[in-house]
Amino acid sequence: MGSLIQLDHLTRRYGRRRGVERVSLSVPEGALFGFLGPNGAGKTTTIRVMLGFLRPTSGEARIFGLDCWRDSKAIKRDIGYLPGDLRLPAWMDGTNALSIFGAVRGRDLAGAGRELAEKFDLDLRVKVRDMSRGMRQKLGLILALAHSPRLLVLDEPTSALDPLMQQTLHELLRQRAAAGHTVFFSSHSLGEVEQLCDRVAIVRAGEIVADESLAVLRDRAGHDVTIRWKDDAPALAIEPPEFLKLTRCERAVWQGTLEGPVRRLVDFLAGKSVEDLSIGRPDLESLFRRFYEHERKDRQ
């Protein structure tokens, strides 16, 4: 399967201020791709370059094999985009928004829009000025999804949705991905990316620090380990091995991250008086924290 989105050493600066630095990533067709990072990491800047709002300072951004700046119009025919901070003209309601967006795209979006509005439980007759933030977000999603685009670019799409609607959206995105559409899902909510996406890139301070499948990412991140010793005397005498990075080392309890295979730990503990042992996969939340630990330390 070819790459639908291809970013090569993409750099975008705002004068002296950093936007993104040498970002390279590749999103295959049909993927549910999570783009993770905290606020200000460069997620929105990357998306804006992809959509041709910003010109790259250096490097290249291509979608469908076309240049994101030069061929922006052609690219956007097959893209559904939801901005992070969605604002629509106050006078619009759902019906005339669909009619205008349909006229711009040269397609009738009324039918598809109504179906989506039913799924999202949105009254299309309400004017934007009278909508809550959640309702506006639903309308933005309907406008992004109604023309069944080949690529969906969603910048923090669930930020104003209640959990039920989040589930509805996840379901819809899974269906679209199963039908061969690609979803580029930017978020700082790690839980939902873990639930939804099969591949993830993590952006930190404008740079990509990881770009792999969730399974590989978890493997790379090691295991969370808790060892409870039978009595504290031997624990004090034992030196922790190199492959066990301890974050908590009390008299009877060790807690930390195991790097490498579990077998090494089992071998190490053999014959020692262990009362309880817990080995688990880290959730994405702690994985994410680990990636940012360095940044925090640098700041300190």
Partner: peptide, 17 residues
């Protein structure tokens, strides 16, 4: 200024259009 530029430019139209 009113924050609708992203939605407008996200549509498949050139800026000259």
């Amino acid at each position: 200024d009113r924050g609708t530029a992203d939605v407008l430019l996200g549509l498949p139209v050139s800026r000259w259009e």
